[in-house]
Each structure stands twice: as C-alpha cells, then as structure tokens.
C-alpha cells in the first residue's frame, strides 16, 4: 500500500476549555486505502490523544461512528479516504448538541425512537413455534429492518434542524417497520402517534435521509407509504 499525505480539518470542541467549536488542521501520512476511521485512529494514537470520537465494530453494523465528512453524513469505518481526495473536513452530525469533538448527544434521538414503541406488540396468544411470515410479508418490511440507528438520516434532515420536536426519519422508519409487520398488533397505537404535525407530516420528501443512509435504505419511500397508511386509517 502506498502512503498518502492528507490534510484533515476537524471541528473540535472541548467543553472544559472551549466556549464554542473551532477548526483544527492535522497534516498526516496514511495508507491510501485507509478509511476515515483509520485516519481518526492515526490522529488519536500518534498525534493528538485528546481527540474524541465514537467507534466500536469497525464493520458498519453498530452505527457508532456516523459523522459529517466533506459535507456528507457517512460511517467513518466503511468510508475510504479516496472518496474525498487529500483534503478532509470532519464534523460531528448536525442537529445534535456536541458533547466533545465528534461525539454528539444522541439522547433525544433515542428518546424519540422510544416514543414510537420500537418493539413487537402482540395481542394474540403466542404460537407454539415461531411466527410464520410469507416472503411477500417479509418483503414489505425487509429493507427497513436493516436500520442500524446511526442517526445519519435524522442529522441530514432539514426538517429536523430547526425543530427539535420533530420525530425524525429514523424513528418514523422504525414506526413503518412495525406498523407494516404482519406479526404486530400495535399499528393503531403507532399510527396515532405518528399522525401528528411533529410526526410524519413534518416530512416533506426531501430525500436527504435516503442519500445519507449508509445502508441505502429507501427511507423516503417508506415514509411516503406510511403517510398513505395514516390517511387511509384516518378517513
């Protein structure tokens, strides 16, 4: 692997000494096949141990390392640096309070998720064996179950930025995932929750969520199906 000289501009915020975030530039040499996470590790381990960021699985499964790189929300662990060239500009996700450097407070994100009851609600007695779903029934929710809750979509949604009361695409996608699940009995409850000015109706089909999703989930399409379902239910 060849070495590449890159310039990395990172938005830093250390609450114990900074009043507001500021940019810091690092000039480093890394393998040209490195990922953004490799770059951050290199800075953290070899240049500046005070840099804070989240990481865990390194396999784009845990959703910990979502951040904004050159204006795009990505998972640091799966994004190669050659996608952006030799100049990187790394920021925390928009729309969330910064705890430190690239670490944002995701508490509101998970609280919103809890509001739509992100678990299977069952009224009927449990079957003796597993629930049977047809391939068609699974197809309806299949892709939406791939969400890893990285918050890249909610952070990319312009409707979320000015209005902290909006549920946001991730919670709404989770609502879709359970409302359209053939095994679930809690659809009416969830439809009532999302049928709100700060629920599904704050979504204006901007498609930013879909563009930002590292799992390539067609979020906007599912939210549109959810809108139709809510209207059918309320007519």
């Amino acid at each position: 692997m060849a070495k590449a000289d890159i310039s990395v501009k990172i938005l830093r915020f250390q609450p114990e000494k900074d009043k507001k975030p500021h940019w810091q530039v690092y000039a480093i040499a890394v393998d040209d096949e490195s990922t953004i996470l490799d770059v951050l590790n290199e800075i953290h381990w070899q240049h500046d141990g005070t840099l804070a960021y989240r990481r865990s699985c390194r396999s784009s499964i845990c959703g910990s390392c979502a951040m904004k790189v050159n204006g795009r929300n990505v998972l640091a662990c799966e994004t190669p640096i050659h996608r952006f060239g030799s100049k990187l500009k790394i920021e925390p996700l928009s729309g969330f309070n910064i705890i430190k450097d690239l670490v944002v407070d995701l508490e509101p994100f998970f609280e919103k998720l809890k509001r739509i009851k992100p678990y299977l609600i069952l009224d009927k007695p449990l079957p003796d064996k597993e629930y049977v779903q047809s391939p068609e029934q699974l197809e309806q929710i299949g892709e939406s179950t791939l969400c890893i809750l990285c918050a890249a979509c909610s952070a990319a949604c312009p409707s979320s930025w000015p209005n902290q009361d909006y549920l946001g695409p991730a919670a709404l996608l989770k609502a879709y995932r359970f409302i359209f699940d053939s095994r679930d009995d809690g659809a009416d409850d969830r439809l009532e929750i999302v049928n709100d000015k700060n629920g599904i109706w704050r979504c204006h089909t901007i498609f930013n969520c879909m563009e930002a999703c590292p799992k390539k989930i067609k979020i906007t399409e599912y939210l549109s199906r959810l809108k139709v379902k809510v209207v059918e239910n309320s007519l």
């Binding site: 919103k112 509001r115 549920l167 929750i193 049928n195 709100d196 700060n198 809108k227």
Partner: peptide, 11 residues
C-alpha cells in the same frame, strides 16, 4: 419535550 405531540394531525 423530545417529541412534542401537538394534537393536530396534518393528514
């Protein structure tokens, strides 16, 4: 406060 329900539907 993280999701303020408005009692207004936009359907």
């Amino acid at each position: 406060k993280n999701f303020k329900q408005t009692s207004r539907s936009g359907s």
